[in-house]
């Protein structure tokens, strides 16, 4: 009965998911198709004994790497997921893309695409698989993180959060982001994938000396040099690397505060 670190992380995430399901009216889980959101989906099935009792939302920018879409459709079918696919139709019709500026493209196709699907279904809370160790601004997140109606994030005035007592009371119109994986690290995620045999898109595994470490849209997501072609090899690689996980994500590097501006506007 002694718990190791993965048991402790799993138990904490399950607790958070159950809190979200109990305390909030209408919630959905964001599924980016990346490794983290696959783990999150797996944890939901653990928390609810094989069921996923809320919709799973994927925001399609139509710029995603093709393997990701193929994986999404296959797994959604196998796991009988209540999948909702959202998109910013107007922006797509207007031909928005990274050529107009990466931050602008992300804001239109991801953030606004998300806002539209949330509004269309009346969701008051979304569960997202961000982690504190990914990036400085995410390190400051709360597990239950309120957003204004416009999805704005006021990182200077966040609610207190301690002793696992989360903010679950809100003024009408408040939206909530719930972050069950906040305490996990990249290597925890891979070790858990290994332990539980959770499926992931195979572009995470190295081919011809390169692999993807973080997945996003094809134009803005670069691969990293790597020979890790199995989960075990990825874990071994991460134990020694000092290259940051999002180094392949071009939108973060536009300026000193690009990612912070993205997040303040509602980006995950």
């Amino acid at each position: 009965m002694t718990m190791n670190d993965l048991d402790a992380l799993e138990s904490q995430s399950v607790y958070i998911l159950r809190e979200a399901f109990n305390r909030l009216d209408k919630i959905a889980m964001l599924w980016s198709i990346g490794k983290d959101s696959n783990v999150m989906l797996w944890l939901a099935r653990k928390a609810f004994f094989g069921h996923v009792p809320f919709p799973v939302v994927h925001v399609d920018t139509h710029h995603k790497i093709p393997e990701m879409i193929e994986f999404r459709d296959r797994v959604a079918k196998e796991w009988s997921l209540p999948l909702i696919i959202g998109e910013n139709a107007a922006a797509l019709a207007a031909g928005v893309g990274p050529h107009q500026g990466r931050v602008e493209c992300c804001t239109a196709l991801k953030t606004d695409g998300l806002k539209q699907v949330l509004a269309a279904h009346g969701f008051t809370g979304v569960i997202a698989g961000i982690r504190r160790d990914e990036e400085g601004t995410r390190a400051k997140e709360r597990v239950f993180s309120p957003r204004t109606e416009e999805a704005g994030w006021d990182f200077k005035d966040q609610p207190p959060e301690f002793w696992d007592q989360f903010k679950t009371d809100f003024a009408p119109g408040t939206h909530l982001r719930i972050h069950p994986l906040l305490a996990w690290t990249e290597i925890d995620v891979w070790r858990y994938i290994q332990r539980e045999s959770i499926p992931v898109v195979d572009i995470y595994f190295a081919k011809n000396g390169r692999r993807y470490r973080s997945l996003g849209c094809a134009p803005c997501t670069g691969s990293v040099a790597s020979t890790a072609s199995t989960v075990a090899e990825i874990i071994e690689e991460l134990e020694t690397t000092r290259v940051s996980e999002r180094s392949g994500r071009a939108q973060d590097q536009e300026s000193e505060d690009a990612f912070e501006r993205l997040r303040a506007g509602g980006y995950m």
Binding site: P159, P160, F162, K167, D169
Partner: peptide, 13 residues
């Protein structure tokens, strides 16, 4: 241990 909530906010522990 406990927290106190007033209106919508945690206001103490």
């Amino acid at each position: 241990r406990f927290v106190l909530v007033e209106n919508y906010d945690i206001v103490g522990g």
